[in-house]
Nucleic acid binder design. Structure first.
Lengths: 139, 139
DNA sequence: ACCCTATCTTAGACCTTGTCTAAGTCAATG
DNA sequence: CATTGACTTAGACAAGGTCTAAGATAGGGT
């Protein structure tokens, strides 16, 4: 994740304590926190960090392509630091947990040009939904 | 769309003026309004209809499987009356317009069991993103 | 080493989307 | 056509997110 900070500095980012902390919270794979969860964890590392800063920083990381925004259910967005490996998501309908998954094949080629209606199609997201083992056991 | 009302009545729905109006607004294909847009149009037909009723009615239509909820961008959910034909969505990144599209093949089979992590997978959504012809022309 | 200043951070107001409540209204059954 | 449980209403409330104006600071220039 220090690569990330390095990469950002060369792109003109000012390296503040707050940004370091947000990057640190996002570190690790298969992390898909909401902005508030990220804020809660950041506060433990830097008590005076504000909600606005966390939102700003996440927004910047998204524009820079370092982090992906995942809008799952119309509730809080989640942030996915695994932006450099193509992957899709598997979401538990009950508890909202997200797993990264790697389907076979390229979903873009499944959309013939007659089904593109003149759009310049630039990406696809595939979202699998189901019940995770824990929630399936409870049901 | 009167089929819809008929179907709902046989399922114990009380047929009120408000519900008729919401169904009427949803009528037509390729309509993907937000709840507020539906409310605005419903008010033109029935000025005293309240926001809460529109939300209630949409929620009921979704639970009954007559209408699909589409969470595209973490902003307002959109409602898709085309629930009886399997389809996916193509969304303009600039203006938010949604088109129904029909990709070839079944995206579920692209997820091998080794990538399911014990989940009971019950559905997939595929969302294509790009620029619609209008927005591409402006850019 | 230490200014300087553009950039960053902050608290809190504010906005949008959606949910809830308690009181009043009405569709449809008998 | 009276009754009643389901439906609707206005408005308060809640969650998630954005914006603003004032203060703080990273890092380049000297």
């Amino acid at each position: 994740m220090s690569d990330l900070l390095e990469r950002l500095r060369t792109r003109g980012w000012r390296l503040t304590a707050q940004r370091r902390v947000v990057a640190q919270v996002l570190d690790g794979d298969h992390v898909h926190f909401t902005a508030d969860e990220i804020h809660a964890r950041a506060v433990e590392l830097l008590p005076e960090i504000s909600r606005a800063t966390v939102y700003n920083t996440l927004g910047e990381l998204v524009s820079l392509g370092e982090v992906l925004e995942v809008s799952t259910d119309g509730r809080a967005k989640r942030y996915d630091p695994n932006a450099h490996h193509a992957h899709q998501h598997l979401i538990c309908q009950s508890c909202g947990t997200i797993r990264d998954v790697h389907p076979t094949g390229d979903p873009l080629i499944a959309l013939p040009s007659t089904e593109r209606f003149g759009f310049a199609v630039s990406g696809v997201e595939v979202t699998y939904r189901g019940l995770c083992p824990d929630c399936a056991a409870k049901a």
